[in-house]
């Protein structure tokens, strides 16, 4: 993949930048140009917001059959996390044993390496989640 593909998502992957609808106040992540609830009313009113990074595990899985670039990490935990702001996202849960992850568990975003494009390619970074202190 070309470098710009990772570079242009940096704001959201590094700093959890989403959007808040100026019409209904709903938060989306990643940023959206149109609010799924308000439609046309929201166009031009989507303000950038930074998520707090605090959330709760809604569901999770332990991945054993992994894509090539995640081969060294398996088994690893993927979860859908509901953020304090109400929006949900998909991420890894780290710094804990897979068997200790539970639905309802409180987690906190952390900045981590996500992957690498081959031996000499670009390294890309973003959020993973760890148990909240």
């Amino acid at each position: 993949m070309a470098i710009p593909r990772f570079w242009r998502e940096i704001a959201s992957r590094y700093n959890l930048i989403g959007t808040k609808c100026g019409s209904c106040g709903k938060v989306d992540f990643p940023p959206r140009a149109v609010c799924p609830d308000c439609g046309r009313k929201s166009i031009g009113k989507m303000q950038r917001v930074k998520l707090t990074g605090k959330g709760t595990v809604v569901t999770y899985t332990v991945i054993h059959d992994a894509p090539a670039q995640f081969e060294l990490q398996k088994p690893y935990v993927m979860a859908i996390i509901e953020m304090e702001e109400g929006v949900r996202l998909t991420s890894q849960v780290i710094d804990t044993k897979p068997e200790d992850v539970k639905i309802g568990m409180k987690v906190q975003a952390a900045f981590r390496k996500l992957g690498q494009e081959g031996e000499a390619g670009v390294i890309h970074y973003g959020y993973k989640f760890r148990p909240a202190g």
């Binding site: 990643p30 569901t59 899985t61 991945i63 995640f70 859908i80 998909t90 639905i103 996500l114």
Partner: peptide, 24 residues
């Protein structure tokens, strides 16, 4: 691809998360 797969979510993994929630 940009907001699921890039973080390590596989196709089976996404269905697995539906299964886990259905069990719950």
């Amino acid at each position: 691809q940009e907001w699921e797969s890039v973080f390590g979510a596989t196709f089976a993994g996404l269905y697995a998360m539906m299964a886990r929630r259905h069990m719950y």
